[in-house]
């Protein structure tokens, strides 16, 4: 079975000063899949996500979008607007919930987005808070607004950086359902960074394990959890990996 590749990492080595934070020779993200990136803190997961969103340029190597290598400087705007990230902190603007959700539409010059805003707010269960100041929301509500803000622009690739970290179980369940719907019903390609292996198991079709900046293993979810090939993956899954 062949898979269409949407994003690729080729021979990427990324450094902050002298410190190598990522060293990934090859990684492919398949169109329409939900790929989870798991690993301990400091493994380079969030850095990889920023590179995949062309927010940073790798020190060495290439990031390919639809088989073509781009950098943050030469990626055309219309392509840049097909990938978006929801960060661990919701990063809401100091305006109403509705205006936050509409931000991506506004920067694209889409003026008549009211129906889409309503639909996006409904999809995250926040239609009643449309006019509330975004900064008065709880952590879970704020993260749902951040998700709605990303989903409304219907990105080809949705990158999620620990979207449920520090949230209560009810909000985790709601957010996971939103992510799963986006992937399954809209065929959106999703790359989910999480340190919660159970979340990866619940949501992902494939899982990649990053450790100290290196991609140690990538496999379909069942294989990854039931027959991990790398000893460090097994240790991580069993909670034996000390970091």
């Amino acid at each position: 079975m062949t898979h269409e590749i949407i994003l690729s990492v080729r021979n990427v080595r990324h450094q902050y000063g002298e410190r190598v934070v990522l060293d990934v020779p090859r990684l492919d993200v398949r169109k329409g899949e939900l790929l989870a990136l798991v690993g301990p803190s400091g493994a380079g997961k969030s850095t990889l996500l920023r590179l995949l969103n062309f927010l940073e340029k790798p020190t060495q190597g290439d990031i390919l979008f639809h088989q073509t290598p781009y950098t943050p400087e030469n990626l055309p705007l219309h392509l840049r607007r097909r990938i978006t990230t929801v960060f661990q902190k919701p990063m809401l603007l100091d305006m109403s919930v509705r205006r936050n959700v509409a931000y991506g539409l506004r920067v694209r010059g889409e003026r008549d987005g009211r129906a889409r805003e309503d639909a996006a707010l409904r999809s995250v269960g926040l239609q009643d808070l449309a006019n509330a100041p975004a900064r008065t929301l709880s952590g879970g509500e704020a993260q749902r607004v951040a998700l709605a803000r990303a989903l409304i622009i219907e990105p080809e690739v949705l990158l999620l950086d620990e979207p449920t970290a520090n949230l209560d179980p009810a909000n985790v369940r709601i957010i996971e359902a939103i992510i799963a719907r986006a992937n399954r019903e809209r065929a959106m390609t999703v790359v989910l960074v999480t340190h919660n292996v159970w979340q990866a198991r619940r949501l992902a079709q494939r899982v990649a394990f990053l450790y100290e900046g290196q991609l140690l293993e990538i496999a379909d979810t069942r294989t990854f959890f039931e027959h991990p090939s790398h000893p460090k993956t097994a240790a991580f899954l069993h909670g034996d990996l000390v970091y």
Binding site: T85, L93, Y103, V107, A150
Partner: peptide, 22 residues
Amino acid sequence: ELVLQLRSLGATQGQINRTLLY
């Protein structure tokens, strides 16, 4: 991180600057 978030949402540098001013 807010600058990165705005860029990620598709804002141009000019739009980012205006949002930051706001």
